[in-house]
Design a protein around this nucleic acid. Structure first.
Length: 490
RNA sequence: GGUACCAUGGCCGAGUGGCUAGGCAACGGUCUGCAAAACCGUGUACAGCAGUUCGAAUCUGCUUGGUACCUCCA
């Protein structure tokens, strides 16, 4: 088993990863709120924790990966008089709320599949766990950390803070919070403004509502994660992940809820991915500066100079460490596209390498560096840097500038496959393209290239150049290689 | 206002007290009928100022600029 270190937000430092019940690992990640299309920002946690999931599984852990679907409970406004986001969207589009949910869940899955993000072991939805959430509230209430007010139940932060400490994850101090939130409007039903809803009584216009011992209503914003985490991973589990913007108040409230219900913290390692920025500012739904994943895939957006494939997006995200911000730009994305293609070309070239009776390359050293990088808090940019060293090695082997034994070649093959495909989760898009698509049209282009090849044999440069240049004008790039001509869409 | 964080070559980004990632772009070369593609090679950058040190981009202080969270947010 590899020695893996993980940066724990709780301690603000890297810690050796020791699961509670090896070889089992429990991991919970905050999933999407399904009232809109996924954007580039959503890809970051999905891909970050996909690599965590893949690597933990790869080194032999049995991982139960839970990623929720939030389909209730997020209020529209900061005040408590808001309306459920899903319900609002449903009214606007005159659809059943669950129809809206299903539509966006499907689209989310499609985008994630395209980026080769593995599906989690369990993908529970908040609306499917109302009963569990009500039970969870009862426990908090029994332990004295909740109070009822006008049919709604609130978490009593002041009481909680007397016995434990509210704000330990994000470094907040309750007194400071009280000062800063005081000026926000009518927190009429709450004891103090920092208290948050566990159960909210529904106004007549709310169409998503459930009965409870207190009122017809819906569960609070933070409750689903505590509830479903507990249900599927236990009162204590190993990893909880999510975006940095969820650290406060969402994850802070989760901790408070779990401690209030069970008397102890449930999560051992808190992991937070940083934001993706655009022109140096966070890309976010509320800021309206986001670009959806489908827009990236199609190129249909004013800020995009071209389409970017799902693997380009994945590679782009993996080229930065998950705890750093990552600035989007066309230039950066194009760089990722080129780099990714180069890596994939080398993976093809690796198959053509011939063995020799001795090795002039050091595969063991490469292996050590790759594992050291991924074990160091999933440092994928370093992993990729070493993979590019391997690309140079492979190209030199192919050009017979270096040589390699059968044993080493086999080792190199395994290593490259493990890291590129299994751990980083990259895949060649050429194959996917060739497999699908219109066969007749592929053959037609191939035929043109054959004609050009014949023309070249006859030194009919006028004809061969016409074919090449006209194809280019239509949108095909012709590439002459040692094995003949290839083409692709530009 | 409170609390954090960041500032790296044309761009994106690692790293870190001395051995000065990587990708893209640019430039040069190999190949090619010419191109393109592919491959090879070339760049001593770390906001500013002061300090600690034999030695700092890496540690400390100050200055400047930027970001995030405090309200839904990945």
């Amino acid at each position: 088993m590899q020695e893996l270190s993980i940066y724990n937000t709780l301690s603000r430092k890297k810690e050796m990863f020791k699961p509670l019940n090896a070889p089992h690992v429990g991991m919970y990640v905050c999933g999407p709120t399904v009232y809109g299309d996924g954007h580039l920002g959503h890809a970051r946690p999905a891909i970050t924790f996909d690599v965590v999931y893949r690597y933990l599984s790869f080194i032999g852990y049995k991982v139960r990966y839970v990623r929720n679907i939030t389909d209730v409970g997020h209020l529209e406004n900061d005040a408590d008089e808001g309306e459920d986001k899903i319900a609002k969207k449903a009214r606007l589009e005159e659809l059943e709320p669950m129809e809206v949910v299903q539509y966006y869940v499907n689209r989310y899955h499609d985008a994630m599949d395209a980026m080769n993000v593995m599906r989690p072991s369990i993908e529970p939805s908040a609306s499917g766990h109302i009963i569990e959430q009500i039970e969870f509230i009862k426990k908090i209430q029994e332990n004295g950390y909740a109070y009822e007010s006008n049919g709604s139940i609130y978490f009593d932060i002041k009481k909680y803070n007397e016995d434990y400490r509210y704000g330990k994850l994000s470094g907040r101090v309750l007194e400071d919070l009280l000062e800063t939130t005081r000026e926000l409007d009518g927190q009429s039903e709450k004891k103090i403004s920092a208290d948050f809803a566990l159960w909210k009584k529904a106004m007549p216009e709310h169409i998503m509502r459930w009965s409870s011992p207190w009122s017809d209503g819906f569960p609070g914003w933070h409750l689903e994660c505590s509830t479903m985490g507990t249900k599927y991973l236990g009162k204590e589990f190993d990893i909880h992940g999510g975006g940095m913007d969820l650290m406060f108040p969402h994850h802070e409230c989760e901790i408070a809820q779990s401690v209030a219900a069970h008397g102890k913290e449930s999560v051992h390692y808190w992991m937070h991915n940083n934001m993706i920025t655009i022109n140096g500012t966070k890309m976010g739904k509320s800021l309206g500066n986001f670009i959806t994943l489908d827009e990236f895939f199609s190129g249909h957006h004013d800020s995009l100079s071209q389409a970017y494939s799902p693997m380009t997006i994945r590679f782009f995200i993996l080229q930065a460490h998950y705890r750093s911000t990552l600035d989007f730009s066309n230039e950066a994305l194009q760089a990722s596209q080129k780099g990714f293609e180069r890596l994939m070309t080398a993976m093809e070239n690796l198959k053509k390498v011939k063995v020799a009776d001795a090795s002039s390359v050091d595969v063991d050293s490469l292996q050590n560096k790759l594992y050291a990088a991924i074990n160091d808090d999933f440092n994928t940019p370093i992993v990729i840097a070493h993979l590019f060293d391997a690309v140079k090695m492979i190209n030199a082997l192919l050009a017979a500038k270096e040589k390699i034994t059968e044993t080493d070649l086999s080792k190199l093959n395994t290593l490259m496959n493990d890291f590129v495909y299994e751990i980083l989760g990259l895949k060649s898009e050429k194959q996917a393209e060739a497999a699908g698509g219109d066969e007749a049209y592929h053959k037609a282009v191939d035929l043109l290239l054959e004609l050009r090849s014949d023309a070249k044999k006859n030194k009919d440069w006028a004809l061969s150049d016409k074919i090449r240049d006209d194809l280019k004008a239509i949108g095909f790039v012709v590439k002459d290689t040692a094995d003949g001509a290839e083409w692709e869409l530009s």
